[in-house]
């Protein structure tokens, strides 16, 4: 990419050295803000967290080396495993519901029959704009037994559901969180799917139709493979996001929830680190979570790569 300077006047010659200096330095200068922040606020805390997970803390600057104590304790800590079960259960339920729902909505919206597409797009995506904390506040009020909107609607269909106390029954507590999370995220997935669907080459459909393929067959053999990258992306992002769930159940239950139904791994991390004050144990939990996410992601990538080779 060396721009060859052709003829030069005197000023051009002087500019030449300054110019080529800034030309060479440019990439480093451009990257400098990012690099400083990256090393300072990502890599250094990361390293710090690794070290912390081998230490016990009890306050500002009260630390003591503890070796593998935290990790050994983690294996036997039943509260941690409750959190793991809750989190994994949530992640599976969430992904199994969000991806198909987003895709369905995107397919509907992509239909050429639709008018007011912009309105619908706004309607579906606006719930994603709200954010977990505000959504938790909103759903706290929506799920009030007997008088909240959701119970009213349910009660109109099935009267006994009017009294449903979402916050005190562990089974329904989990459903409540799932509901709120889906409300937040279906629009997000829909936008991505819509963009992907609209990028599919129409000719592929015409070719398939000419071959005599029906609607379902067209969907399975043309649409799905074409939107595979976006699907994979959403599954990966959704996995990381749902395994890291914290704000929604924390604000909703103001704690771990009925019989720990709302306890997620990150919430346990938070209460151990900033509630009980042991940042070391919190770091150990964080790394356990990273290991979990890393393993799941790797497995997923392997599956998708493998599936991709056999269309």
């Amino acid at each position: 990419m060396n721009g060859k300077q052709g003829d030069c006047s005197y000023s051009a010659a002087r500019r030449f050295t300054l110019w080529s200096l800034q030309r060479r330095a440019a990439p480093y200068l451009f990257l400098l803000p990012f690099l400083i922040l990256f090393f300072g606020f990502v890599l250094y805390p990361l390293a710090n967290s690794v070290i912390l997970s081998f230490e016990k803390t009890a306050g500002p600057r009260l630390t003591r080396f503890a070796g593998l104590t935290h990790f050994r304790f983690l294996l036997h800590d039943w509260l941690f495993w409750v959190a793991v079960l809750n989190t994994i259960g949530f992640a599976i339920a969430f992904l199994c519901l969000q991806i198909p729902a987003s895709l369905a909505l995107a397919l509907l919206l992509n239909s050429p029959l639709v008018r007011f597409r912009n309105f619908f797009r706004f309607a579906f995506f606006s719930s994603n704009l709200v954010g977990q904390a505000f959504a938790a506040v909103l759903f706290t009020l929506l799920l009030v037994p007997r008088a909240g909107l959701v119970n009213r609607m349910l009660g109109a269909v099935w009267p006994s559901l009017l009294e449903l106390d979402w916050k005190s029954d562990p089974r329904f507590a989990r459903v409540a969180i799932l509901m709120a999370a889906l409300w937040l995220s279906v629009g997000y997935g829909m936008i991505y799917f819509l963009a992907a669907l609209q990028a599919v080459d129409q000719e592929l459909y015409d070719a398939a139709r000419a071959d005599g393929a029906g609607a379902w067959s067209r969907f399975w053999h043309v649409t799905l493979p074409q939107i595979r990258p976006v699907t994979v992306f959403l599954i990966l992002v959704g996995t990381v996001g749902s395994l890291s769930l914290f704000e929604l159940p924390y604000v909703f239950f103001q704690g771990p929830g009925p019989q720990f139904a709302g306890l997620t791994i990150v919430q346990y991390l938070f209460t151990q680190g900033f509630g009980a004050g042991d940042l070391g144990y919190a770091s150990a939990i964080a790394w356990a979570l990273v290991a979990l996410i890393g393993t799941v992601t790797l497995v997923q990538i392997k599956i998708f790569r493998g599936a991709g080779e056999h269309p």
């Binding site: 306050g59 500002p60 600057r61 103001q254 900033f274 509630g275 004050g277």
Partner: peptide, 15 residues
């Protein structure tokens, strides 16, 4: 309110 505990714990932890 109830947030007194986390606020105090955070203040103490930050010295």
């Amino acid at each position: 309110g109830d947030s007194i505990n986390i606020r105090l714990a955070s203040l103490f932890m930050a010295g």
